[in-house]
Computed example of a mutant assay.
Amino acid sequence: MFSPQGPSALELLIQALSSVERGYDLLAPKFDHTPFRTPEDVLDACADALTGLGPFDGGLDVCCGTGAGLRVLESLCAGRISGVDFSAGMLAQARYAYPEAEYVRADARALPLAGAFDLAVTFGSLGHFLPAERPAFFAGVHRALRPGGVFAFPVGAPPPLASRAYWSAQGFDLAMRVRNALWRPPFVMYYRTGALSALRTDLVAAGFAMPSVTPLTALGRRDDGSPKYGLVLARRAATA
């Protein structure tokens, strides 16, 4: 799962026993050498799906981490691109990779941005928000967008009940719940808390129009022919 440049088992254990912020500060220098970074083919598929929705001026990568999503924004946005994250370590890595972008250190549940962006994206972040926290997260993104702005993020199709992926995700979430019941501070990262129906409900409650899902067919199909991934597109209503 990890390249030789990735973290050791001990480093991962220390990270898992830390808070989310501290854990990512520790992991940041080696994060891009782990399977936790969003794969290039997912980024490319999302960029392709967003190309026809522009033009976009300003772009925002929410929970930007080391900046994988900034490459998508660079290819789509004519104006400034920005990344926001609450891990100073991850932001330092992003600044090194994308020095032309602007950065804000902030908690995504209380984004200090308003009406400045035409496109917002997030990759691999939703598992870090409990269902009760998602409304604040989505409301902050809604505020950060200009009228008519688009919020986009990829989602994977639910794995079949009999698949290894399904039971691996279930096992991971159970381990995290046990860890958080026994150890403080908590480390919030769950795979099975973001059903598409719940995400849509929370996006609409935050002020977005009813989201659509664009199939990312370049990333493959399941045995039943349905796409393995889709891109959720939520738009802030345009003013008159």
Rank of each mutant, 00 (worst) to 15 (best):
M1H: 09
Q5N: 13
L12C: 11
I14G: 07
S18V: 12
S18K: 14
E21W: 02
E21L: 07
R22L: 06
G23D: 04
Y24H: 00
L27M: 12
A28C: 13
A28D: 14
P29R: 09
D32M: 01
H33V: 03
H33E: 10
T34A: 04
T34M: 04
F36H: 07
T38G: 15
E40W: 10
D44M: 07
L50P: 11
T51I: 08
G59D: 12
D61G: 04
C64F: 01
A68K: 07
G69N: 11
V84S: 04
L91T: 01
Q93A: 08
Y96C: 12
Y96E: 04
E100W: 10
E102L: 13
Y103G: 02
R105Q: 10
D107E: 11
A116T: 11
D118N: 14
A120M: 07
T122Q: 14
G124E: 00
L126S: 09
G127H: 11
G127A: 12
L130F: 13
E133Q: 13
F137Y: 08
A144D: 00
L145W: 02
F151Y: 15
A157T: 04
A157G: 01
P160I: 00
R164H: 08
A165L: 08
W167T: 12
W167I: 10
A169T: 11
D173S: 06
L174S: 06
M176Q: 15
R177S: 15
W183L: 03
R184P: 12
P185C: 11
P185F: 14
V188G: 05
Y191I: 03
Y191V: 03
T193C: 12
A195T: 12
L199R: 07
D202N: 13
D202M: 14
A209R: 09
P211I: 15
V213R: 07
P215Y: 14
P215W: 00
L216F: 12
L216H: 07
A218L: 02
A218Y: 02
R222I: 02
S226C: 02
T239N: 12
T239K: 14
